[in-house]
């Protein structure tokens, strides 16, 4: 921390103005102001095309509407489900792969990673670099009932019940499959993050544990996971934010909201309300405000749970 002389020099003033003022100005004007404006719009019946000043205030009507709209509540439920399962599946998978890669080598002497670790690490990260919209489009074609690769492979190995099986067209499978596609896109990123965290654990700790005769499972559960719990918390929050949005993936995979709206999420309903059909911008803005509040609440909850169970407050990456 800065402990030097307190008087304000030109150096210090110009420094603070440029270093803090400039980024903050950009941020306030282009991010914060538009969102405050959106909150303002959520109290009106603005339809998106006329001058905003001519819209009427309906105050909380839009919010009342949301909580009586079964479609929006359905979408909210889907987001809640995604926020629970997406981080869970992604983190378990990423953590498993990370542990296997970092400590998959033999158990004598110093701990070492599995053979070919860097290859697996590089390959796993690939999906993360692909634009979400392309991941969605690609998997939609891969999952196509007739011409898709997935059913092609399944029927080739003799599973004829999957001939023309509409993974994204059945209520039972549309949501799970969509989740797996998102997981596919993110596992590599979190794996990389966990690998980095595990590698920063001093190897003396591992060696001590080994001398005590702990097996791999015990080591992972008792040593590795507790030591990187802050990273897991961060991953949970990031992935949760993705789950609460999920817009691009869901739109690409199920442009209409899935069979019987089984994959409809809030952001998609927001988009349809504001941009489609009736151009109810006031209502759409209210949905966005709810979405932002839910996301904030989610992050707070994860912090709280981690803290109550003995973790640190700080966010690490």
């Amino acid at each position: 921390m800065q402990r030097r002389k307190r008087h304000l020099s030109f150096d210090k003033i110009s420094f603070m103005v440029v270093f803090l003022g400039l980024p903050l100005l950009i941020y306030l004007v282009l991010v914060i102001y538009p969102f405050l404006q959106a909150v303002h719009l959520s109290l009106t019946n603005w339809r998106g095309f006329g001058p905003i000043s001519e819209a009427d205030y309906v105050w909380l009507d839009n919010y009342v509407y949301l909580f009586t709209s079964s479609k929006f509540m359905l979408a909210l439920g889907h987001n809640a489900m995604l926020a629970v399962f997406l981080p869970l599946i992604t983190i378990i998978l990423a953590l498993t792969l990370a542990i296997v890669i970092t400590v998959g080598g033999h158990s004598h002497g110093t701990i070492r990673g599995i053979r070919g670790a860097s290859f697996y690490r590089i390959v796993s990260f690939f999906p993360y670099v692909i634009p979400g919209i392309i991941i969605g489009l690609m998997w939609r074609l891969l999952l196509d009932p007739g011409m898709g690769l997935v059913n092609g492979l399944l029927t080739t190995i003799g599973l004829d019940q999957f001939k023309d099986f509409a993974w994204l067209g059945k209520e039972e499978t549309a949501m799970p499959v969509s989740m797996l596609v998102i997981v596919w896109g993110f596992v590599g990123f979190y794996m990389l993050l966990f690998i980095a965290a595990i590698k920063s654990i001093p190897s003396e700790i591992y060696e001590a544990v080994r001398i005590d005769g702990a097996g791999r499972w015990t080591t992972a559960v008792r040593v590795t996971i507790p030591l990187i719990r802050d990273n897991i918390q961060t991953a949970y929050i990031y992935m949760g934010i993705i789950a609460l949005d999920a817009f691009i993936y869901m739109v690409a995979l199920n442009p209409t909201g899935g069979p019987n709206y089984s994959t409809l999420v809030m952001s998609q309903e927001l988009f349809n309300t504001a941009f489609g059909g009736q151009n109810m911008w006031g209502r759409g803005s209210a949905m966005g405000v709810v979405l932002a509040l839910v996301t904030l609440a989610f992050s707070g909850l994860v912090f709280l749970v981690n803290r109550l169970t003995g973790g640190k407050d700080a966010v690490s990456y």
């Binding site: 914060i32 102001y33 538009p34 959106a38 817009f247 966005g288 932002a292 996301t295």
Partner: peptide, 18 residues
């Protein structure tokens, strides 16, 4: 940090005007 949680397209119209 709060900025991380905002849905982008909500900001689009005001952003356009800015």
């Amino acid at each position: 940090l709060a900025g991380l949680t905002f849905p982008i397209f909500l900001a689009i119209v005001p952003l356009y005007q800015v």
